[in-house]
Structure formats: structure tokens, C-alpha cells
């Protein structure tokens, strides 16, 4: 038990060290635009279908569940506002980020892991270049940016999914659905969704690059790296969700107190 906790803390420290090293390389040396564009294509454009589909379905599922609870009270007029607000603030970013972490994070960690196993990273080192600069930085920047953009697209698609399912099967037409949205969803809620998306993107990027870069032990090691990446990203997404919500809520209360006094 104690050993496991020790190991976890050690891993956390090594992850932080690795991230700092990558960011230092990024700020001092920059990133070459051709490899950045290539990585953005591989990671971002090719994950578009999965993001759109998952966004639609997540929105539809939440609309169905919230409709069931409101129907008993005859409060279906609130359906649009409530389901949009719940999805944007909390469950939407988390569920879409789960899917993206599988698609994007596990993909990158498998690719980097294969490079590490087949000594391609060492070959780059032999040629006198820094593998962090050439391989890791473009991937991490591309991952962070494209996860951020994809998450925001996915959040938009959840609204579409909610509208479609409620007008098709729940008897709430799109106008009724959208009437209450402005009542519930303030710009602050959207801001929470956006901040969460950015941080989730950052977590997916750094964690998958960290586990991929430090892969050892043949084909079995690559599998292990992928498994560790997906577990670590999921847990960190949930943890981040909680921390960001709490921090932003207390910030909001602080602002309100400042405005009132």
C-alpha cells in the first residue's frame, strides 16, 4: 500500500519534470510549423467524426434523462435550459474528453512508445538533435490545441443532439427548447466549459507524451504504456473537473463580493 503511494508520487514528480522540460524547450526553441500542421492533421482532423458523433449522443442521452425527471412535474419548458446547462458545465466536457483521450491520447502514446522501443528516439539523439524538440513538442502542442478545439466543437454538438432528440421524440420543439437556454446558460457557464476544455487538452497531451516517451520493454511495454495513459488521463480529467469547478465558483463568489462592496 505504502509502496504504491510512494510509486504514485514518484510518477507524479517525473511527469511534472517532463512537462516542465517540454515547455522550456517549447518556449526557447519554438516549434516547426510543418510538423505542427502534420500532427494537427493526424490528431485533430481525423478525430472529427468521433467527436461529432459522441457529442450528438451525449447531448441526446442527457436530454432524455432530464426530460424524464421534468415530465413528472409538467416542467418540460425548462428542458432546453437545464439539459444544455448541465451538459456544458459538467458532464459534456468530461464524457467527450473520455472519448478523445482514447482516440488522441492512446494513439499518441502508442506511436511514441513504438518509436522508443524501436530506438528511433535514440537514433535522433545520435544525429545530434533533441528528441524532445523534434518529436515531443510538435505532438504536445498539436494535441493540446486540437483537443481544445475538438472539445468545444463537441460541446456545440451536444446542444444539436439535445434539440434533435427533443423535437423528434420528446415533444419539445426547437423554439421551446431554445427559449430557456439564455435564462440558464450564462457566459460564465460557457467560460467554465471552455476553461475545462483547455485544461483537459493539456492533461491529455502531457500525460500521453510522458508515458509514450518513457516506454520500455518491447511490445508488451507498448501495451502497458497505452493502458497507463488511458487510466491516468481519465483520472486526471475527473480530478481536473472537480478542481476547476471549485476554483471558478470561488472566484465568482469573490468577484460578486468585490462588486457589491
Amino acid at each position: 500500500m505504502l509502496k504504491a503511494i510512494n510509486k504514485g508520487i514518484e510518477g507524479l514528480g517525473r511527469w511534472a519534470e517532463f512537462s516542465i522540460r517540454v515547455f522550456k524547450t517549447f518556449t526557447s526553441k519554438g516549434v516547426s510549423s510543418t510538423s505542427l500542421v502534420e500532427q494537427m492533421y493526424h490528431v485533430g482532423v481525423r478525430s472529427l467524426p468521433i467527436t461529432i458523433v459522441s457529442g450528438l449522443f451525449v447531448g441526446a442521452i442527457l436530454a432524455i434523462q432530464i426530460n424524464l425527471q421534468l415530465k413528472d412535474f409538467g416542467a418540460q419548458t425548462f428542458l432546453g435550459g437545464l439539459s444544455t446547462s448541465t451538459t456544458l458545465r459538467n458532464l459534456g466536457p468530461v464524457l467527450i474528453a473520455f472519448l478523445l483521450s482514447g482516440r488522441v491520447g492512446a494513439f499518441t502514446s502508442a506511436e511514441l512508445g513504438t518509436m522508443a522501443i524501436t530506438d528511433q528516439l535514440n537514433a535522433i539523439r545520435c544525429l545530434g538533435m533533441d528528441p524532445v524538440e523534434k518529436i515531443v513538442v510538435p505532438r504536445l502542442v498539436a494535441l493540446t490545441c486540437s483537443s481544445f478545439l475538438l472539445l468545444i466543437l463537441g460541446l456545440g454538438m451536444t446542444v444539436v443532439g439535445g434539440v434533435v432528440i427533443s423535437s423528434a421524440h420528446l415533444g419539445v420543439n426547437p423554439i421551446q427548447f431554445s427559449q430557456n437556454i439564455s435564462l440558464f446558460v450564462s457566459s460564465w457557464s460557457i467560460g467554465i466549459g471552455v476553461v475545462k476544455s483547455f485544461l483537459f487538452g493539456l492533461m491529455i497531451g502531457t500525460i500521453s507524451c510522458f508515458f509514450g516517451y518513457h516506454t520500455a520493454g518491447g511490445a508488451r511495454g507498448v501495451g502497458r504504456a497505452v493502458k497507463r495513459t488511458s487510466v491516468a488521463t481519465l483520472v486526471s480529467i475527473i480530478l481536473m473537473d472537480f478542481l476547476v469547478s471549485t476554483a471558478l465558483e470561488s472566484l465568482k463568489t469573490f468577484f460578486e463580493i468585490m462588486a457589491n462592496s
Binding site: L95, F98, F107, A110, A219, G223, V226
Partner: peptide, 27 residues
């Protein structure tokens, strides 16, 4: 080793997608 990594990635992605679909239809 490349194939092993790809297999694990595909497993995660496809299971997550199937879970979301199944969840929608079951709900």
C-alpha cells in the same frame, strides 16, 4: 510492437463508442 499499440488504442476507442451508442439506445 506498433501493432500492439494500435490494437490497444482501437480497443479503447471502439469500446467507448459502442458504450455511448448502447447507453443511448438502452436509455
Amino acid at each position: 510492437s506498433r501493432g500492439v499499440g494500435q490494437a490497444a488504442t482501437r480497443a479503447v476507442v471502439q469500446s467507448c463508442l459502442f458504450i455511448i451508442f448502447a447507453d443511448f439506445f438502452l436509455s
